[in-house]
Computed example of a mutant assay.
Amino acid sequence: MTFAGVMSLIWLSGCSGQAARFGLPEPASEQAPVMGDLWVGFWIAAFVVGGLVWGLIIWSIIRYRRKDGDAEVPRQTKYHLPLELLYTLVPFLIIGVLFLYTIKASDQVLSQESEPDVVIDVIGQKWSWTFNYHGADDPEIGVDAHTVGTLEKIPDLYLPVDQTVRFNLDAADVIHSFWIPSFYFKMDAIPGHPNSFDVTPNRIGVYDGKCAELCGEMHAAMIFKVHIVSQEEYAEYIRTLADNGNEGLVEMPQTLKHIVPSAANQEEE
């Protein structure tokens, strides 16, 4: 079987089995396959280019090896303009194609709805996450609520399935990175520079979330659990948070008081 045939089989098997997707986790959002296809496409391009280069190297070694009885070395060519143009232009062509597909994927992933179904504020702080759920304008929920993670308590993030979620990202101290691996996407939470993106979860289940930016001593503790649930279960969870004393939206100074009590004491002094 040719090299191209092997790569075609790998490509065609990309929709079945985790190993066939080069170790990518099961996609859990509508946007994830866009990033997954781009990533797999880059690997295929790398394999094709690598296979071609290694093939030419091996062919040259075999074809032009010095045979017994050869008195002279092969003819030496100092300049070969067509070949030099070829290996100069082809890399630019490859880069151009990869860049085009990267821009197309980026535009798809970063596009935002004018009116998302759900809005959640995400605040990164040393060393956990705060999630603010905007639900007061939703007749099925009727209240805003929040959850604040600590070093002792890993926070939970609830998302309704098949609903467009707008994440508004900010940070209370240093740069963090909000990452849900099963969404195949991450975005930085930068102090004083709010970021946002939309995502549509489409697979019910529990997934891992973490900080993807080396933010300091307890960076490894900045993990959370993502629960993709039905719309009814999502609304019930927000109402339960409010009933348990977590009604309203938490501002960043309040968040710091939950995470670093000493900082709050210094602020009061």
Rank of each mutant, 00 (worst) to 15 (best):
L9W: 03
S13C: 06
G14Q: 15
C15R: 15
C15G: 15
C15N: 15
Q18T: 10
A20S: 14
A20T: 09
A20M: 12
R21N: 01
F22S: 03
P27C: 02
S29N: 05
E30Q: 02
E30N: 01
E30G: 00
P33M: 03
L38Q: 02
W43E: 02
W43R: 08
W43N: 05
I44E: 01
V49Y: 00
V53T: 10
G55F: 03
I57M: 09
S60I: 00
R63W: 00
Y64T: 01
K67W: 05
D68P: 06
G69Y: 11
E72D: 05
P74A: 03
R75T: 08
Q76T: 13
K78W: 00
H80E: 00
L81R: 09
P82E: 00
Y87T: 01
L89D: 02
V90E: 10
G96N: 02
F99S: 05
L100D: 02
K104T: 04
K104N: 06
S106Q: 05
Q108S: 11
S111Y: 06
E115L: 15
E115Y: 14
P116A: 12
P116K: 13
V119Y: 01
D121A: 02
V122E: 06
G124H: 08
Q125R: 07
W129C: 07
I141L: 07
V143M: 06
D144Q: 10
D144W: 06
T147Y: 09
T150S: 15
K153P: 10
I154L: 04
Y158H: 13
Y158E: 07
L159S: 05
V161D: 05
D170S: 15
A171D: 12
A171Y: 10
A172F: 06
V174H: 04
H176E: 00
I180D: 07
F183R: 09
F185V: 03
M187V: 11
D188V: 09
A189Q: 13
I190A: 08
P194Y: 12
D198S: 01
N202E: 01
N202F: 09
Y207H: 11
A212H: 11
L214G: 12
G216W: 12
M218Q: 13
H219R: 06
A220Q: 14
A221Q: 14
K225E: 14
K225F: 07
Q231Y: 04
A235L: 06
E236C: 06
I238L: 14
R239N: 08
V250G: 04
E251L: 01
M252F: 10
P253T: 03
P253A: 04
I259N: 13
V260F: 09
A263F: 15
A264M: 12
E269T: 11
E269D: 12
